[in-house]
Amino acid sequence: MGNWAVIAEYYSDVYRTEFICRGQETKDQALEELHAALHTYLPSKSIVEKRRQVYRFADRESYLVVIKGRLSEWECTLRIAELVSDSADPLVAERVRLEEAGAKDSGGPQDRVPPGW
C-alpha cells in the first residue's frame, strides 16, 4: 500500500478533512487522482452545482475549488498528502526517513540553517 493520499479540506459548521482517495504508490499517481477530482469532487453536503471555479496555488499541488449553487457558494481545498508516520506500522516512518536521507545524499540543492540562527 502506498503512502500518498488526496484530501479535501473545508469548513461546514466545523473544519473538516475528508480523504478522497488513499494508498497511491507515488506522488505522481496522487497528482493524477487530484487532477481527476478537481472537476468531479462533490461535497458531502447537498448542493446543486451551477458553476465551478478551480484555482491553482503556487505550489502546483493544491487547488481551491469554488462551487456556486442555486442558493449558496461552497469552497474547499484539494491537495495531496504523504503518510510519514503510522503508530500501527512503525516501518512507515523508517521508510520515509531512509528516503529523505537518500535525497540529502543525492548532491542536489540542500536547505541549510545560516550561521547564527
Rank of each mutant, 00 (worst) to 15 (best):
M1D: 05
M1Q: 08
G2D: 02
N3S: 11
A8G: 09
A8Y: 03
E9N: 11
S12R: 14
D13T: 15
F19V: 10
I20R: 00
E25V: 11
T26K: 03
T26Y: 02
K27C: 10
Q29Y: 00
A30T: 02
A30M: 04
L31M: 15
E33Q: 08
L34S: 00
L34F: 01
L34N: 01
H35E: 10
H35F: 07
A37S: 05
L38H: 00
H39S: 13
Y41R: 04
P43G: 14
K50A: 04
K50Y: 13
R51D: 09
R52Y: 02
Q53E: 14
Q53R: 13
Q53D: 15
R56A: 13
F57D: 06
F57R: 07
A58V: 14
D59L: 02
V65A: 05
V65M: 03
K68E: 13
G69H: 02
R70P: 06
E73W: 07
E73S: 06
E75T: 10
R79N: 12
A81I: 08
L83G: 01
L83T: 04
D86P: 01
S87W: 12
S87Q: 12
D89G: 04
D89V: 07
P90Y: 00
L91S: 15
E94Q: 13
V96P: 02
E99V: 08
E100L: 15
A103E: 12
D105T: 14
G107T: 00
P109D: 14
Q110D: 09
Q110G: 09
D111C: 15
V113C: 08
P114W: 08
P115A: 08
P115W: 05
G116W: 01
